[in-house]
């Protein structure tokens, strides 16, 4: 899923400075599952904003909504009426959702309430960790199902580096496992250690963001 976290309140408050009618919109897909932007978080943020703005002279009105997937225009369409009523929209979706709203409602002022972080999974309750960088050319099959690009701090394809110690990564030994230790262990378990003899050529990053904004086309789904 896409993992995000709420922006600092100071930043959110600064962005909506002077706004007296505000719509807070959550998204009930990825960011709801990672407990950052679902209906509950919309309610919590709105309550916090109302508390923070209470001292302000003019009254602040905050509408709370959430939609199934903010990255899909069809789900956002019913927001039109509410958006027309407010001065600004605070989106609690990932960056994709925020941009969708902005594209869909060109006259509305849309602010993000979340920092979109990465594609990851819940590692333990309350902990989400990155698992995929979206490089556009998946190498997982060669590395025992463990992504060296995402999980190695140095994105080494021919690892490990000298900073691997007791299975931990030197960049942050407390929190990071050495991806190359994981790859070794997994390949050993699968009896595929010989894979490690192959020297990986330099990665072609054109399929990643380095090649510019990406798009996918499925001609069979287009008329």
């Amino acid at each position: 899923m896409i993992v995000a976290e709420r922006k600092p309140m100071v930043e959110i408050l600064a962005s909506i400075q002077g706004v007296s009618r505000l719509l807070v919109v959550g998204c009930e897909t990825c960011v709801a599952v990672c407990l950052a932007g679902g209906a509950k978080e919309v309610a919590v943020l709105s309550a916090a904003l109302r508390l923070a703005l209470r001292e302000r002279t003019s009254a602040v009105e905050i509408l709370e909504r959430s939609v199934e997937r903010q990255c899909e225009e069809e789900f956002n369409a019913p927001l039109a009426e509410d958006i027309a009523k407010v001065e600004a929209v605070l989106s609690m979706a990932c960056g994709v959702g925020v941009q969708t709203l902005a594209e869909q409602f060109p006259d509305a002022i849309i602010y993000p309430a979340l920092n979109t972080q990465f594609m990851g999974r819940p590692e333990a309750p309350g902990i989400w960790a990155e698992r995929c960088l979206g490089c556009g050319d998946c190498v997982l099959g060669r590395f025992g199902g463990i992504c060296p690009i995402t999980r190695c701090s140095k994105s080494l394809l021919n690892g490990p580096c000298g900073g691997s110690s007791n299975g931990r990564c030197e960049v942050d030994p407390e929190h990071l496992e050495c991806a190359w230790q994981l790859i070794y262990d997994r390949l050993a378990r699968l009896g595929q250690l010989e894979r490690l003899y192959a020297i990986e050529p330099p990665k072609d990053w054109r399929s990643a963001h380095d090649g510019g904004p990406r798009r996918t086309t499925r001609e069979d789904l287009r008329l």
């Binding site: 509950k40 309610a43 919590v44 309550a47 916090a48 109302r50 508390l51």
Partner: peptide, 10 residues
């Protein structure tokens, strides 16, 4: 619930 607390303060 955190919302209970925030609502009460509100």
């Amino acid at each position: 619930d955190v919302l209970h607390i925030l609502r009460a303060l509100e």
